[in-house]
Nucleic acid binder design. Structure first.
Lengths: 346, 346
DNA sequence: GTTAGCAGTCGGGGCATGAGAGTGCTAACG
DNA sequence: CGTTAGCACTCTCATGCCCCGACTGCTAAC
């Protein structure tokens, strides 16, 4: 339904348009695309591509700009999703210089990603699907108030201030903590609630808090991802009048980008691209999202994404998202004590 | 040097300008400000205020807009920095509904503040000036790798992945942990390093990690504050062309707003307002910052700030920042087990 | 199928015009 | 001396116009 040459021309137009942010004239294509044909021939092809819906003409006497369908074709024809070796090295080197903490990794990923692709990066923390208790610690603060620190499988640490029904000293708390640790070690929140044991009032209270924390952790999905790089996006001519940026920001900041995207169920492996109108939410229909899961199968997963105008550099963004997701996966795998499988292609 | 009536007129103009975002004509003042004089008289006063530098005229035949000096006068003359009782109740009610975690409080503060004042809110976590160890926990992950969880005075919890020089099991780690806890309980990082004790190789390594974590915690100032509400700011006509917003965002996101402000040394108590050119950094000289410290004296302090166009509602922003800082102070005081002193005025 | 040539179309910049808004000034008033 | 009415003046903004330049679509020839 589309000849090889049309496809070449289409991809050339899109590449140029991404770089110039202006309609691409036939002249330019004939000169630079090295097809050995004249502008007139190009124009014929362009007219065809326009009829087929791959191109849009802002007005009669102007060059073409790609439609969502055009971008889709362009993205599908990208073959190489690997970042150049030297860039890979540069990135992984940066990760070695940072503190060995999940938050630091994720935050760094967001910052790097935003800078590398000059758009907004969205990276969520890795989340266990069904968290299991690794360790529990109760620390007395004052009278009946205490701090409970919960360490879950995968080096997830959660703390919460709690208040017992009566004053307790550190010694009692340590004893309670020891008992609960031995009782609940390695269990999920559900298993803990189902466990039938004799507990004192205080132990019961501590257990309740523990279960609550674990349930909260299990239930909060895509909460508060790291957002970085708004100022890069504002640089794009698409967002010159800030009204357009505002709508998008409101969506991403307030309602949570990931919640909006998820309905798409991009559950398969690899990088996914959602272009313009393919997005469900209206506020983001002149944007594209490049998104990828990372994590360890059956243990924990997170999401890494880039949001930018549909006219973003996919050839740069896709490999970058892909590579960073694999780096994060490996780091997270270390937390769960498992090796991470070889990288796979899209 | 400025009569009572001039001052009234000036403040009226500024109030109007903040509301309308347009130059204020003499007509409007005469009609609404209830001074019992005609527009002509107002014009005379306006001419005076312009000569004195309180007002600026965008062009000859236009109303006036306030200069930074004018805003300064306006802000100084604000007397009531208390939020209405019912708003106070609404806010404190919201805090009761949220998880009892420092991060949750600070994040909520940023969100609330941004929404209440319709501008960007910047809130930093409370930071101890000289943190002391409350509890240490070592958790084995795999072979030589482990997780160290450090609880500091003030319910600050930090975790880090560490690697020992040799494989260690959980039992050994627990023993090491118990020993270090009894040795270092309540000490600062400096005191820990100065403590002369016989340690095994592993204990030495764990101590080093502990000290590093505490030093990092002590040294990182104003790191990664919670930012909220960019989309509100983009609504302001001042930022209609997103170029102006970009510069500001770059400053706040990349270089850290608080670092830029700090040189001003607003060490005293209460809310401070930095207007336009009073800011050191050029990128923010058409903005104002309303900023306030919170925390417990000598134990921990954080910062809460609002950034917006110089034409922001100071009468709303100042009380809101003030009240939220006192709420946060009280919450943080609870963490340190001390009562928080009565609220004081600016 | 490809190409040259040419007419046709549309956006954007430059410019003049006119209306409207609001002031500055002057002269009169109490 | 402070206040006021009246009026001329100034400047912005919106509108309309025109023309230029950029590209295309079409046609006819290769």
């Amino acid at each position: 339904m589309i000849t090889a040459r049309s496809s070449l021309i289409l991809n050339y137009i899109i590449g140029e348009y991404i770089a110039r942010a202006m309609p691409v004239p036939s002249q330019l294509i004939a000169n630079n695309a090295d097809l050995g044909v004249s502008p007139a021939t190009i124009r014929n092809e362009m007219a065809l591509l326009e009829r087929e819906g791959y191109l849009i003409r802002p007005h009669t006497s102007a060059g073409c700009i790609p439609s969502d369908k055009g971008y889709r074709h362009y993205v599908e024809s990208i073959e190489d999703v690997r970042l150049p070796r030297d860039e890979q090295r540069l990135i992984s080197h940066t990760f070695h210089q940072v503190e060995k903490e999940v938050e630091a990794w994720v935050s760094l990923t967001a910052t790097l990603l935003a800078r590398l692709v000059q758009n907004v990066a969205v990276v969520s923390l890795p989340k266990s699907t069904d968290s299991r208790l690794k360790h529990l610690e109760l620390i007395s603060l004052q009278d009946a108030r205490a701090l409970v620190v919960v360490v879950l499988e995968g080096a997830v640490v959660k703390e919460k201030l709690i208040t017992f029904s009566e004053a307790v000293n550190q010694l009692s708390l340590t004893i309670i903590g020891a008992k609960l640790n031995s009782l609940y070690d390695g269990l999920s929140s559900r298993q803990i609630t189902e466990k039938q044991v004799e507990l004192t009032a205080l132990e019961k209270q501590a257990t309740d808090y523990l279960v609550t924390i674990m349930q909260v952790e299990d239930s909060k999905e895509y909460q508060d991802p790291y957002l970085e790089g708004w100022h890069f996006m504002l640089n794009q001519p698409e967002f010159a009048k800030s009204e357009s940026a505002r709508v998008l920001m409101e969506l991403v900041e307030r309602r949570g980008l990931l919640k909006v995207i998820v309905p798409g169920k991009f559950s398969r492996q690899g990088v996914h691209v959602i272009i313009g109108k393919e997005n469900h939410d209206e506020a983001i229909q002149n944007c594209s999202v490049v998104i990828c899961n990372y994590g360890v199968p059956d243990q924990a997963k997170g999401t890494i994404a880039v949001v930018g105008p549909t006219r973003m550099s996919y050839t740069r963004t896709i490999p970058t998202v892909y590579y960073l997701s694999s780096v994060l996966s490996q780091l997270v795998a270390g937390l769960y004590g498992s090796e991470y499988p070889e990288q796979q292609k899209i």
